[in-house]
């Protein structure tokens, strides 16, 4: 898994979270979280409902301000940067509950992401159809997710499963360096979850990915490293074998299932 030599640039940590803590008033929803994602990481974050997985994503991406702790992206402290600046540095997340521009077409949703990546969102006087290479990129991404024929449909008219695919398409369009996927297959019918998993498996090899997922089959198929979060704290982190053999994890989380 992470047995590569430290001098290998791929082994440098892309995301380094240490001592992360968040309390809402007296309610502590995250504490003592240390997590490192190196280039090429395929880490799964699992834990029971309400464990604080989404909260962790919100803290790292800047939606929530941590009470304490440090978050480093490519070695630089980012915990004081606004959310959008973190995204521009390559820290991208998907949403557990689909969050899209529902009155816009699928193509426009993707164009928004691509224009930001290319820093062309302040272009005033050129028609969007005339922005070079934009629609080719939209097509390329839609094809990956089998959404090619949906480009000009309004998002609100799509089935929920398809909307989940658009959510994935948006993060792909942003070409992230660190990707946090919050239950990308939640609420997706079987027919489409295969496409999502395929898209996730086809992500660039050097991208650092953290996948939050309840489906253990998916987790074991995807992850080379698993972190278990319980009540806002990391219980244990290890390889899939280590995790599936860990008695505590079996008791608390996996229960009778594994």
């Amino acid at each position: 898994m992470n047995n590569s030599i430290t001098s290998d640039p791929l082994a440098l940590p892309r995301l380094e979270v240490s001592g992360l803590k968040k309390a809402f008033g007296g309610l502590v929803v995250a504490q003592n979280i240390d997590l490192v994602l190196k280039a090429g990481a395929r880490t799964a974050l699992i834990g029971p409902n309400g464990a604080g997985k989404s909260t962790f994503v919100n803290l790292v991406t800047g939606v929530l301000q941590p009470s304490s702790g440090s978050i480093k992206l490519d070695g630089e402290e980012i915990s004081n940067l606004p959310q959008s600046a973190r995204v521009r540095r390559g820290l991208v997340r998907s949403f557990q509950v689909t969050r899209l521009f529902k009155d816009l077409t699928v193509a426009d949703n993707l164009r928004l992401a691509i224009l930001q990546l290319r820093r062309q969102s302040f272009t005033f006087l050129r028609r969007i159809e005339h922005v070079e290479g934009l629609d080719a990129e939209v097509e390329r991404i839609l094809d990956i997710l089998g959404l090619g024929d949906r480009a000009s449909s309004e998002v609100r008219g799509l089935a929920y499963g398809e909307q989940r695919l658009v959510e994935i398409a948006l993060v792909l369009a942003l070409k992230p360096r660190v990707l946090l996927l919050d239950e990308p297959a939640a609420g997706v019918p079987q027919s489409e979850s295969g496409i999502i998993l395929q898209a996730v498996e086809d992500l660039p090899a050097d991208l650092a990915v953290l996948l939050i997922e309840h489906d253990m089959n998916l987790v074991f198929r995807f992850a080379t490293q698993i972190a278990v979060l319980v009540s806002g704290e990391l219980l244990v982190e290890g390889t899939p074998e280590e995790i599936s053999n860990n008695k505590e994890v079996r008791d608390i989380y996996l229960g009778a299932g594994v």
Binding site: V63, Q116, L174
Partner: peptide, 8 residues
């Protein structure tokens, strides 16, 4: 908010 999450 979604625009922020896209980096705008």
């Amino acid at each position: 908010e979604r625009m922020r999450a896209l980096g705008y």
